[in-house]
Design a protein around this nucleic acid. Sequence first.
DNA 1: GATGAATGAACGAATGTTCGTTCATGATTT
DNA 2: AAATCATGAACGAACATTCGTTCATTCATC
Lengths: 206, 206
Amino acid sequence: MSTKQKLPRSDKTELRRLHILDAALTCFTQHGFHQTSMRDIATAAGVSLGNLYNHFSGKEALIIEIAALEAAELQLLIEGLRTEPDAIAALDVFVRRYLANCMQQETVVLTIEVMAEAVRNPRVAQHFADNRRYLAVALAHVLQHAADTGSAPGVWQAAEAAEAVLDIIEGAAFRTVLLPGTTAPATVETVLRAVQALLGVRRQHA
Amino acid sequence: MSTKQKLPRSDKTELRRLHILDAALTCFTQHGFHQTSMRDIATAAGVSLGNLYNHFSGKEALIIEIAALEAAELQLLIEGLRTEPDAIAALDVFVRRYLANCMQQETVVLTIEVMAEAVRNPRVAQHFADNRRYLAVALAHVLQHAADTGSAPGVWQAAEAAEAVLDIIEGAAFRTVLLPGTTAPATVETVLRAVQALLGVRRQHA
DNA sequence: GATGAATGAACGAATGTTCGTTCATGATTT
DNA sequence: AAATCATGAACGAACATTCGTTCATTCATC
């Protein structure tokens, strides 16, 4: 069961790196970037302070790598978007899944932290913008396809509509986590209805 | 010309307090809550470090008062909402004005900072929630009025619709400031159209 | 024995806060 | 009106911590 026995050294250090990164993620979401010290991270990872600097060149490097981390999860969502043939169904699934992802408390907290950092750190801003554009383009593609096949009126530019849909999802997620009195299921319902109204989709069952 | 001559002492200290608070606001939006030191604030305000603690009990007190600051600006917006008789017109004006407010770079930066703080500090969370609910209730009232007078279909619960409208405005504002490639006027247009689509309002001219 | 992972002590700078003190002002007494 | 006193604004040195980072050294693996 021990992971330290039969792996070559190069793999073991890679594993250590990932383990440290995970510990950093925990610390950052728990206390924020600037209220987390390098000692906190080292302790949480069960690693000496000096060794931490053997794996990461400094705190900023850690932050930047955390900021880039979300891309992996988005990748999965977007795959789902591309494979589904029915555009409307793909949209519905996407909204549900992206919203479910965004509504997680950890996600919200980390996203806010990344945004706060992106304001002042250009490299973090770059990652943030890249992730977001990646998503917007994929969604716009589906919306364009929906408009072409006539399942939704093409009153919008697909790119604009995609941005608006993402705005709603993210805003609703923030609100649900940050403000009391809003339950997750209610948010899902509201967002779905809002997106349909936004795109002029006729209600499936009424 | 000098403000220091004929004012009673109590007024002068009140003025000093506000001056310090303003300096703190500048520092906080420029560098963030936790990258701003009490020395930074004291220096920016032209006040000694010790004296800073005569006016504010500590850093957290400063942060909390900054977090509560936005309520004043919202007050003005809401006044506009209540006085306009035509609900649809009131809505249009409100969206434009709230969006214009939200799209300011300083506002976005400060809001993000406050959100990040609200996650961990219950008192900041309280202020944040209060401000937001205040706005939502006022907007819901207008939407209800619009539905009653028949100028917009009442397919939504007014409260839900109000939340959705605010989500869109705030999300779009974040996006415009944080992501490159989006211009402010384009955002205004997009948001207006999105809100109309959302509420099922027939376009005014088209 | 060579390479690099792992250690924790050490460093200097910076942090939030406290402290004793000075001094201008407004009230109280003479 | 003059003298006294009390209040609290203003100051900046000083405090104990904590910060990010570096370093010499030890240890394990190839």
